[in-house]
Amino acid sequence: MILQVTAVRTPSPGLRALTLVGDDLPSYPPGAHLPVEWAPGRVNPYSLTGLGIAPETYEITVARRSGGSARLHGLEVGDPVHARSPRSGFPPVETAAHHVLVAGGVGVTPLLGHARWHAFWGHSFEVLAVGAPHLGTLRELGPLTVARDRRELADLLRPVVGNAPWNSHVYTCGPPGLIAAVAAAARAAHWVDARIHAEPFVHEPAGAPFEVLLRRSRRRVRVAADESLLDAVDRIGLPAPRLCRQGVCGECLTTLLAGTAEHHDHVDAAEHGRIAPCVSRAAPGETLELDL
């Protein structure tokens, strides 16, 4: 579908909040993302931050990185945006007695959708945020605690998970370290894993171009600035497993034989001498050698 930018705001430096309109916008569940096609065949997902009940507009917040997000930061009111139908990825659990939403940085975006949903339906919820934009909106929706830094967040979180009613659920969106800290705090308070939910930042594949040597197939491939290592391997026709393309599922993990990588996965690939080609890249100036 083709959408049009009707408002551009800067909620904090490096972030751009876009309001998009279109005909007959499909509804979407909390935590859904909008796949935005920022160049032909190049799609990045952005969390929808509004209430998805018969929405008049789509709201997304984009952190400036490179590739697609740089392109979106250049958009002005009136510009067209190509998008696909919203996809669900991080929904709330409707049976929860209470929802604890923990937001780190721009990871607040899917949880803003959650907060709007819970406020609409009168569900019990609270938000803990660190370094997050949109605090004014969150404060209007319900109870909000803002931490100065990660350490203070951990201190604030302990009594929350300790005192929350039975069958509360916690949802964290932010960097892997925050996700791990929240999960540890909840487990320490005897929460079962089924009540602990997290969505890591969806990392964009783009970065500086680099070269990869594929030892087993004796091929050399150049990874362009706006493609992922996995896409580059695809391009030359090598079969490589994959599933989530977000560095979460571990399907695409490959042994890293030589070279220094910038790891962006959430499965500790580096510790095992491996790399997740869907999200990770070469460190500046490095050439990687893979067992592919």
């Binding site: 499909p26 569940p29 998805g52 919203p86 669900s88 929904p91």
Partner: peptide, 10 residues
């Protein structure tokens, strides 16, 4: 029989 993923609630 029809199976539909409802858009707002999933």
């Amino acid at each position: 029989q029809h199976l539909v993923r409802l858009p707002m609630s999933g």
